[in-house]
Simulated assay, not measured.
Amino acid sequence: MGKVLRVIELVRNVRFWFAPGRIEDEGETPDYRFSLANERTFLAWLRTSLALIGGGFAVDQFLPDLPWAWRVGLALGLLAAGALCALRAVNHWVRCERAIRRRENLPVSRFPALLSIGVALVALAMVVVVLAGWQE
């Protein structure tokens, strides 16, 4: 039952991604500073997403001597993390905006911890690559 409710909530949030004006129907208009702070957080997540995507392309383009499986694995890991981060950014923005308007607690998420662990794992793999040299 809990998973079904989460899916319904996600579908409802996705509607707001493409029609943000409809969010005005939720609760009361908050102090604009809260909405602007929420937007700055959204933009920070997007910058993180762009950095991850750029890192994925950099690994693929600038490490040609790296064995193909390592290069593609690291690049795809970074690209996937960037894509997930971008999607999570907009969903988090909507969830927070709705909570602010309803005067509810802001939603919590495991995503920052999972993203941090994923980036740390890619960084550790890069340390292995640097130490091993991978010269052919």
Rank of each mutant, 00 (worst) to 15 (best):
W68Y: 15
L106A: 06
W93E: 02
R12N: 13
V7L: 14
E39W: 01
E9L: 12
V122H: 06
A19P: 01
G55C: 10
G55S: 13
P112E: 02
L131W: 13
L124M: 08
A81K: 04
A44F: 13
D60W: 15
C85M: 12
N91W: 07
A86S: 14
L76C: 14
T29M: 12
R40P: 00
L10V: 13
L87W: 11
R98S: 10
V128W: 06
V108N: 06
A86F: 13
G73E: 03
G82M: 09
A51D: 04
R6Y: 04
F57V: 12
W45D: 11
A44T: 10
F18P: 01
V127L: 10
L121M: 11
D31W: 05
M1D: 11
A69N: 10
I23A: 10
L121E: 02
G133W: 00
A19H: 12
A81Q: 06
V94G: 03
V122D: 05
G77T: 08
S49H: 05
G133H: 00
G54N: 05
V72F: 11
W93D: 04
E28D: 11
F42M: 07
V129Y: 03
G27T: 03
P30H: 02
R103M: 09
P64V: 10
V59N: 01
S116H: 02
A81C: 07
L43M: 14
I8K: 05
L10M: 10
T48W: 03
D25I: 12
P107W: 00
P112G: 03
E28P: 03
E24P: 00
L74Y: 01
G54S: 04
R40C: 04
D65N: 14
A113L: 13
N13W: 08
R110A: 15
E104Y: 01
A125W: 05
M126H: 07
A44G: 10
G133F: 00
G56K: 05
L78P: 04
G82N: 04
V59S: 02
H92S: 15
V128P: 00
A37M: 13
G2D: 11
R103A: 14
